[in-house]
Nucleic acid binder design. Sequence first.
DNA 1: GCGACAG
DNA 2: ATCTTGTCGC
Length: 253
Amino acid sequence: MDASGTISPDDELRHWPTDEAQARAVQDRLRSSVRLDQSGPEPGFAGTVVGVDVAYDDERDVVAAAAVALDARTLAVVDEATAVGRVSFPYVPGLLAFREIPTVLDALAGLTRTPDLVVCDGYGLAHPRRFGLASHLGVLTGLPTIGVAKNPFTFRYTPPGPDRGAVSPLLDDRPGTTDTPGSGGTAGGAGHPEEVGRALRTQTGVKPVFVSVGHRVDLDRACAHTLHLAPKYRLPETTRAADSLCRRALASV
DNA sequence: GCGACAG
DNA sequence: ATCTTGTCGC
């Protein structure tokens, strides 16, 4: 991090961790760079929302990433890019970012214009150390990011109402994991469960998705964007487009 | 020791 | 994430 508080993605990539202990140390070091004090772009803003996703071929040790830019208002695809690389880290719950980010950064670099918002597959704040994939990608790029996951991980939630748009809090029952203002310090006392994200029903009668803040976006807007991006299916169109593209990219390698 | 475990 | 058949519906 330089004097202005910016993280250098190149420096981070040069010092990419090789084991779990190093990776956790990186998360603890970068966590303080996350900006949670900005509300982020308004839903329906004039700009692009970019979806990123990754596909793997562990047999050949190959990973393919895709970045697809949609018009934030019409959801039309306006730009896309892919990148291929070697798997840089094994899958470990809580350390997903180290497996996905290097190739995702390459894909993002292939876009013609700078994204106004990036939607990640996975979590941001909803993470054991409050620094999931979306937080990590946000800090390394400086871009507003959110995380939309398909599973609640270890967090607890009460199912939201049956209608599209219904939400319920995603809660961390284990206090003392992080020093969050209002969580009552580090003593493992019985404090109120911390809301780390939200379960959001994007389609009536369909299992919810799990939204959390990444970087420079608040939770209300993260949910509003997610709902706007999912007018027809459970998952945001950004995620669907990026998922489709990275699979095609992997298959053509 | 056993279960749970984003993608 | 990935492995996989058939099936229901627009």
